[in-house]
């Protein structure tokens, strides 16, 4: 199809199309930023509200339990109920903490990717070698996408790979943040049919990036996210220094 025909079908001039692409790009970038801000707001609200309330509830139950245990005349049925309520409330606090961390880890905002990845590696049943070399902090949306790609890849590896070691590597090449997660497992990962990685592929694509997964049967599995960085602050090598 020639460009004249396309123009005819779309019913607009080249200038109008260019204008439209620019408008869509701006509104998409705004959506990405709004989504990121919203995630942080939800995290903050949960932290200030329900998390504090639950911790206080668990503490009060802990104090009640201690008093009942210290006295000799507690009804065993009441003590058993309080014990169960105390244990359940502690579990609810821990579950909520993990849930909120999954929405947005506060340490990512405060200290960046490398610091945030620490708690992921601590929860990985497979040993993880981390090599994150970034001279400065990428924009929050990019940092956040990189973090969640790593989180999802580690989760998948733990579930399916049977690997003995995972390597996480993040560095900048030609104004692009390259995040690679490689395991020495059995491969054969199916990422086409739903799952967390296909959702992340859209998130990465919205940042003009690309998410690729190579997982031949027999391994290894390699997840690679390439996220372009703003060229004004991350100039390609050889570019004149401003």
């Amino acid at each position: 199809m020639d460009s004249g025909l396309i123009k005819g079908m779309l019913g607009g001039s080249t200038a109008e199309l260019r204008q439209r692409v620019e408008t869509l790009t701006v509104s998409r970038d705004a959506s990405v930023d709004i989504a990121e801000t919203e995630r942080r707001r939800i995290e903050r609200d949960l932290h200030d509200g329900v998390q504090a309330q639950l911790v206080t509830l668990a503490m009060d139950l802990g104090m009640a339990r201690q008093k009942l245990e210290a006295g000799n005349d507690a009804d065993p049925a009441v003590l058993a109920l309080v014990e169960r309520a105390h244990d359940d409330s502690k579990k609810a606090v821990a579950d909520l903490r993990n849930l909120v961390r999954g929405i947005h880890p506060a340490v990512l905002t405060d200290r960046g990717l490398d610091a945030a990845v620490s708690s992921l590696t601590a929860r990985s049943p497979i040993p993880v070698d981390v090599s994150i070399a970034l001279a400065k902090r990428p924009p929050a949306t990019i940092e956040s996408a990189a973090y969640f790609v790593i989180a999802e890849a580690l989760t998948n590896a733990a579930k399916h790979s049977n690997a003995s070691l995972i390597n996480v590597d993040a560095h900048v090449v030609d104004s692009t943040l390259r995040v690679e997660i490689r395991d020495d497992g059995v491969g054969g990962a199916d990422i086409e049919h739903g799952g967390g990685l296909s959702g992340l592929a859209s998130r990465v694509a919205a940042l003009e990036g690309r998410l690729r997964v190579a997982s031949p049967v027999g391994g290894p599995t390699i997840v690679l996210a390439e996220l372009p960085l703003p060229a004004d602050t991350w100039p390609p090598p050889g570019a004149p220094v401003a």
Partner: peptide, 8 residues
């Protein structure tokens, strides 16, 4: 802290 971090 609501979360503990190795970095802190």
């Amino acid at each position: 802290s609501q979360y503990v971090e190795e970095r802190y």
